[in-house]
Design a protein around this nucleic acid. Structure first.
Length: 501
RNA sequence: GGCGACGUGGCCAAGUGGUUAAGGCGGCGGUCUGCAAAACCGCUAUUCACCGGUUCGAAUCCGGUCGUCGCCUCCA
């Protein structure tokens, strides 16, 4: 298995140093709702984590929550709540979104505010070794002493100075020195430290938490491409010089950023789409397919067209697993092994999910072909499900067929409650609605039997207008709810057709 | 200014030296169907931004041009 390492800018053979992969991914600063860029990033690392497990690795996955920083303080003051309340609210919102997206929980979500002792320990250690210095209640990292500073972002101090965009803090020895501990103002949340009341700087909590929970060397450290500098660069400086152990991280993985139009999606630019908004309109499966159909290191331009395309793809996948296995067929069974192998090969090559998806769609086609030809597809379907659900984290709910009745001599399979774009679980459809729809469906079955095509088509069209599609198959009619209609609308339709409720 | 990434069919997107350039969405034609839908079949890039070069051979390597984006400041 090969992964692209930002540090070497090369694909490298993935060799974790223990029997457990230690993985750390930068989490959120909970001061606002997530946008689709966050969704993209966490879906990607979710798939990476899932694939590692699928591959047979044990994974210990830690993700931080930076629940104290300038933005949290600013926002909390703005709306008049405590920083704790604000962070709590948006941390919950984050988990809500992750659950919607079917993102598996990390093993641990340490909070910055709960790790102050470890943070102080690391800062003190750095001071003791001469890598940091306190001034007026704050502590700064002394970048100049680090020979290999810039190795991750592939830049050096001189070229950074040439950019001339670095603030020259009066207190700092060098403009590139960064804050480890920030002296607090009287009205700000603060913690006691050897340097006075204050709070952690931005980068230090990740070093402290990863060292505490995963040890001196991580196998994987992930995050958005925008974190390479300064965040991850500074983490390396802090961690390696505190522990004296190199490397701090074996493999640095960075995902490309979500873009809106031609620009990067970010809170500061205001160019963003809230994740909740996207997920109100599109299913988690559609979102995941959208994200995974481009390579994780490439930027991804968010668009409704893209989501629509993904939605269409989900529908195909959904139908494959919802097919009945042909019975009384030729006794042959479709062998999905070659597709399984190709899928693994794609994922082994730096998590090439677009390629893996292509394999899945190929498997979808041959499965449908086989099903049409009366060849057994149950093995293919289970391979298909395992790859799409376990590895890609798709939900792919099976369209369920419920035997409604056989009153008219034709097997009626009603129900089916899922739509590819947006999921409506069966249990969310009221029985009063279901019974009316079944009634209408049975009436239509009768019409079809009596060759009253016009009336049958009319029922189908009217139901379609109400968000319910009917598909006639050899074994019956499959009903799919794309939205839940009102009882009145169904009553009036039944009235028009002269059907007693 | 420094560093980096990218430019593949109508849209999205794999492929990075050698079979007919994956896959999805969309479109067109067909099979099936009472008609649809779904599924399946066929067609939809002689060509990979442009110009040169290396090579027996390049979308893939090198040089240049144009265009887009990212980081260098908070950011997944």
């Amino acid at each position: 298995m090969k992964v692209f390492n930002t540090l070497s800018r090369k694909k490298e053979e993935f060799l974790p140093h223990g029997d457990e992969v230690r993985m750390y991914v930068c989490g959120v600063t909970p001061y606002a709702d997530c946008h689709v860029g966050h969704g993209m990033s966490y879906v990607i690392f979710d798939v990476i984590q899932r694939y590692l497990q699928f591959h047979g690795y044990k994974v210990k996955y830690v993700q931080n929550v930076t629940d104290i920083d300038d933005k949290i303080i600013g926002r909390a003051n703005e709306i008049g709540v405590s920083t704790r309340e604000l962070a709590e609210k948006y941390t919950n919102s984050y988990f809500e979104d992750m659950d919607t997206l079917n993102v598996e929980r990390a093993d641990l979500y340490p909070r910055a505010t709960e790790e102050i002792p470890k943070i102080i320990e690391v800062i003190q250690g750095l001071i003791d070794k001469g890598y940091a210095y306190p001034i007026q209640g704050s502590v700064y990292f002394r970048v100049r002493n680090i020979a290999d500073y810039g190795k991750l972002s592939h830049r050096n101090l001189e070229s950074m100075m040439a950019g001339a965009r670095i603030d020259v803090g009066e207190e700092k020895e060098h403009p590139a020195d960064f804050t480890l501990w920030k002296a607090s103002k009287p009205d700000e949340p603060s913690w006691a430290s050897p340097w006075g009341q204050g709070r952690p700087g931005w980068h230090i909590e990740c070093s402290a938490m990863s060292l505490k929970y995963l040890g001196d060397t991580l196998d994987i450290h992930g995050g958005g491409h925008d974190l390479i500098f300064p965040h991850h660069e500074n983490e390396i400086a802090q961690s390696e010089n505190f522990t004296g152990v190199k490397p701090f991280v074996k493999y640095w993985l960075h995902n490309g950023l979500a873009q809106l139009g031609e620009e990067k999606m970010s809170k500061s630019s205001g160019k963003l789409v809230p994740l909740k908004k996207a997920l109100a309109k599109y299913s988690a499966d559609a979102f995941r397919i959208f994200v995974l159909s481009s390579h994780y290191r490439s930027p991804l331009t968010y668009s409704e067209e893209g989501l629509e395309a993904a939605k269409g793809g989900v529908e195909r996948l959904l139908r494959v697993i919802s097919r009945d296995n042909p019975t009384g067929g030729k006794g042959e069974t479709l062998d999905a092994k070659p597709y399984y192998n190709q899928f693994r090969e794609a994922m082994d090559d730096d998590f090439n999910t677009p390629q893996a998806l292509a394999v899945l769609f190929d498997l979808a086609r041959v499965t449908n072909q086989a099903g049409d030809a009366g060849i057994s597809i149950d093995k293919a379907q289970s391979t298909f499900l395992s790859l799409s659900r376990e590895v890609l984290g798709l939900k792919l709910p099976r369209i369920i067929h419920i035997e409604a009745s056989v009153t008219i001599g034709v097997k009626t399979t009603a129900d089916a409650t899922f739509i590819p774009g947006k999921l409506i679980p069966d249990k969310h459809i009221p029985n009063t609605i279901k019974s009316r729809v079944i009634c209408l469906t049975e009436d239509r079955m009768k019409c079809r039997k009596e060759r009253k095509w016009q009336r049958a088509d009319e029922t189908r069209n009217k139901l379609a207008e109400l968000g319910i599609t009917l598909e006639d198959t050899k074994t019956g009619t499959v009903v799919t709810y794309k939205s839940i209609p009102s009882e009145e609308s169904l009553n009036s339709l039944m009235g028009e057709l002269g059907i007693a409720p």
